Structures are given as C-alpha cells and as structure tokens.
Amino acid sequence: MAVSLWKNLLQTTKERILQQRRMSLYNSAHGYDEELLKKKLQQFAGGSINLSKEDNGIGILTLNNPKLMNAFTGTMMVELQERVTELENWKDGKGLIIYGAGNTFCSGSDLNAVKGFNFVKTVLGPA
C-alpha cells in the first residue's frame, strides 16, 4: 500500500510540474499573456491539427493545410499546443505518428503568420 501511495504522489507531482512548465512557457519565461497570444495567433486562420487516438495506444497527429503544403498558420500553432497538452494527459498513449495531409509533410510556416509575428511582438513586447 505504501508503494501505491508513493507512486500516486510521484505522478501527481509530475503532473503539477508539467502544468507549471506549460504555464511558464508563455507567462513567466517569456513574459507573454497566453490568452492574448492565442487570440493574436488565431487571426491567422486556416488549416487544422487533427489527432486520433487508436485503441492500441498509438496517436496519429495530422497537419492539415494541403492548400499551403501544410504550412503552419497561427490557428494551427494554437491547435498544436492544445493537442500536445492532450497527448501529455493521455494515460494509455505509447507512441505518436505525425504526418501531413496530401503529399507534403510540412513546408514551414505560412508567411502571412510569420509577418504577423512582428505585430504580435510589438503588441506583447519582446521575448
């Protein structure tokens, strides 16, 4: 019983540390307001990040923006962060396959979103 309690304590501590790290990614470490950053990124719409979780513990993450050769838009960046959080909390996960819809894995970032980052940096301040 003591071993079970110890394992639960370790798991809870690990989850708290992961949560703190995610929050500090935007807030503490870089001085960004996460919600404001998400709002600004979502102005650069298009594409999606799809996640399916198979019964065998394998996740399939699909970059879905084939019109732009799966280039990341702001919306996709926000969705990727959400899917990663979902995967971190998936207790039955064993592996992950990442691929791009259509014939291209990922061509990088949508240039409109990249140009917009200058606007985001101006509004939110430097990292």
Rank of each mutant, 00 (worst) to 15 (best):
V3L: 14
V3D: 11
V3A: 13
L5Q: 09
L5I: 08
L5C: 04
W6T: 14
W6C: 10
K7T: 03
N8A: 09
N8H: 07
L9A: 10
Q11D: 05
Q11E: 09
T13S: 09
E15A: 14
R16I: 15
R16P: 03
R16D: 14
R16S: 12
I17Q: 12
Q19I: 03
Q20C: 08
M23T: 09
M23D: 15
M23Q: 08
S24W: 12
S24Y: 08
L25D: 05
L25A: 09
Y26N: 05
Y26M: 02
Y26S: 07
G31M: 05
Y32D: 01
Y32V: 00
Y32I: 00
Y32S: 00
Y32H: 06
D33P: 05
E34M: 12
E35K: 06
E35D: 14
L36M: 04
L37G: 08
L37C: 05
K38T: 04
K38S: 02
K40S: 05
L41G: 10
L41P: 04
Q42V: 02
Q42G: 05
Q43D: 13
Q43V: 13
Q43I: 11
F44D: 04
S48E: 15
N50Y: 00
N50I: 06
D55M: 06
N56Q: 05
N56R: 02
N56K: 03
I58G: 04
G59E: 05
I60P: 01
I60V: 07
L61M: 12
T62V: 11
T62D: 01
L63A: 03
L63P: 00
L63T: 03
L63F: 08
N64Y: 03
N64E: 00
P66L: 00
K67D: 00
L68W: 09
N70T: 04
F72S: 04
F72K: 04
F72D: 04
G74K: 12
T75N: 07
T75H: 11
M77Y: 10
L80F: 06
Q81F: 05
Q81Y: 03
R83Y: 11
V84S: 12
V84F: 15
E86S: 09
E86R: 04
E86Y: 02
L87D: 10
L87F: 06
E88R: 15
N89I: 03
N89V: 01
W90I: 01
W90S: 00
K91F: 02
G93N: 07
K94A: 10
G95P: 07
G95R: 01
I97M: 08
I97Q: 04
A101I: 02
A101M: 07
G102V: 02
G102D: 10
G102Y: 07
N103D: 05
N103W: 01
N103R: 09
T104L: 10
T104P: 01
T104E: 14
F105Y: 11
C106R: 04
S107N: 13
S107K: 15
S107L: 13
G108A: 14
D110T: 11
D110E: 11
L111M: 08
L111G: 08
L111K: 02
N112I: 09
V114R: 03
V114E: 02
K115L: 12
K115R: 08
K115T: 11
G116T: 08
F117D: 14
N118S: 13
N118P: 04
F119T: 15
V120D: 06
K121N: 13
K121M: 11
K121Y: 05
T122N: 11
V123Y: 09
V123I: 10
V123L: 12
V123A: 11
G125C: 02
P126S: 03
P126R: 06
A127G: 07
